[in-house]
Amino acid sequence: MPDVKICGLTRVEDARHAARSGASFLGVILAGGPRHLTLPEARQVLGAPRHGVRRVAVVGDQSAVDVIALASALTVDVVQMHGRRPPAEAVQIGRTAGCEVWPVLRITGATLPEDAIMWGAVSGTLVLDAFVAGQLGGTGVALDWSGMVESVAALRRELPALRLVLAGGLRPENVADAVRLLSPQVVDVSSGVESAPGVKDPVRVQQFVRAAHRAAEMSR
């Protein structure tokens, strides 16, 4: 059964509702865009740590020093990294901040980047998201899941313990197809459960969690 990550949270009530609805990961964005939060805002939205719910800070091209400071100030479990930085720097961030680091691979078409195996080996987790020029995520653009089946299978043969986080255009209406085709360990949604940028629709959040879990049960 895939875990669910609700990302792009901007309101305290949305984070609370996501946790109550069964989300395993709550994400805040500190990398620009319409859902960007300042450090004090992110701290308020995430609130106190919750049992069984992990906290994720989405970062961009900030320096390693700044990322470590953000992760430590928010006591997050995961730093989700957009942009490119040396693998050794990513490892340093994780070790110093005491958290996992999830590199994001932005996909065009159905082909994984050549460095997918390298980054998967370094981090143990990869986030697959759709490439949209000038935007980091939350675009509502879906990946070609059916076209990616073979490349994802090949990646898993190389890295059997890899955790796959699937993002990009997921919604309650299509998450079952994505789970059936690619069997991700985590499904990551932002705009697909919103009524406006950064405003989560509580009904759609519940529908998404149920649809993701039901799809995994049906595929057994």
Rank of each mutant, 00 (worst) to 15 (best):
T10Q: 15
G138A: 06
I6L: 05
R156M: 04
L30T: 07
P40H: 09
S146Q: 15
S183F: 14
T38S: 15
D115R: 07
A142C: 06
A71I: 03
V101K: 03
T10C: 11
T111P: 04
G33P: 08
M1P: 13
A97L: 02
P172W: 02
V45T: 03
P184Y: 11
S190Q: 02
L182I: 09
L74V: 08
Q44Y: 14
W145K: 10
L26A: 05
R95W: 10
L159I: 12
G109S: 15
V187Q: 01
W145M: 08
V149W: 12
R54T: 05
A154F: 12
G94H: 03
G169K: 07
S72M: 01
P87E: 01
V127D: 00
R50L: 06
Q135C: 05
R220N: 13
S191Q: 10
A69E: 11
A15K: 08
C7L: 03
H36Q: 04
P2E: 07
G32R: 05
Q80E: 05
R95E: 12
Q80A: 02
E194R: 14
R157Q: 13
P2I: 00
E114N: 14
V186Y: 00
V59K: 00
A42V: 01
G147L: 06
R35T: 10
V78R: 00
M81Q: 15
G94Q: 11
M1L: 08
E13M: 08
G33F: 13
A73I: 11
G147H: 15
A142D: 03
D144R: 14
R210Y: 09
T96A: 15
S72D: 07
L162R: 12
A130D: 06
E13Q: 15
L155V: 04
L181C: 09
E158V: 01
G124A: 09
T139Q: 02
M1H: 10
P49L: 04
A64R: 12
G168Q: 01
L39D: 12
R54I: 00
A161R: 05
G124F: 09
V12M: 03
C7S: 11
D3F: 09
G147C: 05
M218H: 15
V45Y: 06
P87N: 00
V203K: 03
Q206F: 05
S190H: 12
A88D: 14
A178M: 04
E100Q: 08
L112R: 08
M81P: 02
T96Q: 11
A142W: 01
R84W: 12
S219E: 15
R16S: 11
V67T: 15
S123E: 06
A88E: 14
V76G: 00
S72P: 01
I29F: 03
R54E: 04
L46N: 00
G192K: 09
P202W: 07
I6Y: 04
S21W: 00
R157Y: 05
V193D: 02
G98H: 02
G192P: 11
W119V: 03
Q80S: 03
R157K: 04
V67I: 07
M81N: 04
S191V: 07
A211T: 13
Q207I: 08
P34K: 08
C99I: 00
